[in-house]
Amino acid sequence: MSRSQDKQNEAIQRLEEELLALEPAPVSATLTRDVLAALGAPQEEVSRATVDVVPAQPVRTRVWSGLMPAAAAAAVALLAVWFTSGGDSSVAPEAAASAEVSVAPQILPNGLQQVAFDTQPQGFEQGPLVRRDGKFYRQVLHQYEESVILVDPHSGATYEIRVPREEIQLVPASFH
């Protein structure tokens, strides 16, 4: 066997090992429940299946997990506001309430921005169209990031809180 063939076989073997290490994604609890129900399983087994089986990771969770840095940045910004305003979690409720009154005017909203980063048609899993008021609509998912900018007029410091958001809009469907 030639040296190049050896190399090729080694590469294929490595690939095989890599593929073997991948675990197929689990099925959803809903599917398990539906299958058991379709087999005529007793009700207690069907309802148990909804809690026993780990559901597949929802798509949106996966998409949003990419936005975790933004969520972390928002958390850091909130903490920064808390610390700069002299917040102390050990103060009594009455004291905390008065602290809020004195802190609130120090941090003022200074801007709001919405940046869309994805728009995609929805609904193929539940059916492409929804019906409202006798008319058909397409579901379109809009995903965007909302930024709120706050400023401390005394120190001049600005804080930005970024929150990932999504909403589904219904767009009238045309069949022409």
């Binding site: 197929p24 689990p26 099925v27 007793p42 026993d52 089986v53």
Partner: peptide, 18 residues
């Protein structure tokens, strides 16, 4: 039979779905 199939399904369903 239902319990046996449930156990079987829970074990094999990820690869069957794949």
């Amino acid at each position: 039979a239902h319990e046996a199939w449930e156990e079987w399904f829970n074990h094999f369903s990820p690869r069957l779905l794949l």
